[in-house]
Design a protein around this nucleic acid. Sequence first.
DNA 1: TATCGTTTTGGGCAGTCGTCCAAGTCAATT
DNA 2: AATTGACTTGGACGACTGCCCAAAACGATA
Lengths: 197, 197
Amino acid sequence: MAEASADRGRTTRQRLLAAAAALIAEAGWGGVSTRMVAERAGVAPGVVHYHFASLPDLLITASTEVARAMLEEFTARLAEQPDAETGVEWLLGELSRYTGNDPASLLLVEMYLAAARLPELRDRLHEIVAGSRAKVAAWLRDRGHAGDADAVAAVLVAVVDGLMLHRGLDPALDFTALAGPLRAMARTDGHKEGSGP
Amino acid sequence: MAEASADRGRTTRQRLLAAAAALIAEAGWGGVSTRMVAERAGVAPGVVHYHFASLPDLLITASTEVARAMLEEFTARLAEQPDAETGVEWLLGELSRYTGNDPASLLLVEMYLAAARLPELRDRLHEIVAGSRAKVAAWLRDRGHAGDADAVAAVLVAVVDGLMLHRGLDPALDFTALAGPLRAMARTDGHKEGSGP
DNA sequence: TATCGTTTTGGGCAGTCGTCCAAGTCAATT
DNA sequence: AATTGACTTGGACGACTGCCCAAAACGATA
């Protein structure tokens, strides 16, 4: 029963999601309109509300799918690094590929921002970020990290996001120069400090 | 010549700025309209374009003034801390007062985001953040920091912003548990790593 | 060929937006 | 009392918004 119709619908839905994700980065979360998405996807304006309940619904779905894919690939590749110090090195190198004004960075920051006002988005993004943090902590433990792996992981993930923010302001910011302090933190093998008092 | 009129105008301008800063945090940069600001300030809708050239002009002026005051007070109080380790401790304690969803945090994040699309705002915010970074670095050097103070300062400021972002997603995130890794980084007195390779 | 379900179309609705502007208020100066 | 000049008012303008819906299009089934 109407098999090809369903197929057409699926690809249209995907085109809408891709267009929405791109436009969030280009125009900002609040700058995306249903008509913009429809035009970018090459469909009529009304089609958005056929496939999605509302504009926020579309934006939330599109952004979380992209973010989840991004962070999962990121942590997966980090997990391949042999030890904590080269991992930090790799992290900074990888991070240098993002200018802070590229679509990927902008999409992530837009999500953080919109999440403050959209509880559903906040929950989904929190789940994604918490997952990344847990994977980084597990990787540190696997590599024989002696200190509080959870704390180091939390700081590392925060540093990544913070640097992304700052890179948007200052494209000249040199990430590789920050390797020293971060290595010192990721090592933490000769110190007494664990989790807390 | 019309002295009292000028006074009236100045206070109206200040009310507009205060209303705009509050509304950016509440409704988001893109969610603020001229009518909202005017109503909050208790003036007629048209008055916004008498005191400011445009809505972005008002928002940029209002947000940068608040952000500059905030960060200057923050770095000034950090500079009072006796040494790097207690400074980090104080930093985390101070940071714990921000929920990630409070007006101050939201305003800052909104600015970072809007800065990606507003060159003038980006330049002003960059100047403010760079100033904070320089003060933190100077404070580290004053306290006898042996390593690359600039790099440590950059990481510290990035951590603060990143944690603010994450705090919005997860109010349960415990900053004080992160003191260990950050102290290890801020110390850096027994290591060989400086700035370069 | 006729019917069915799904998908697509394009216009309509009621509302908000930024910006502008002629008319008005009000205190200080002439 | 008349004039000046800064400031304020409230409505108007065209453009844009999210969402909705009757009608058309289209492939698969009967």
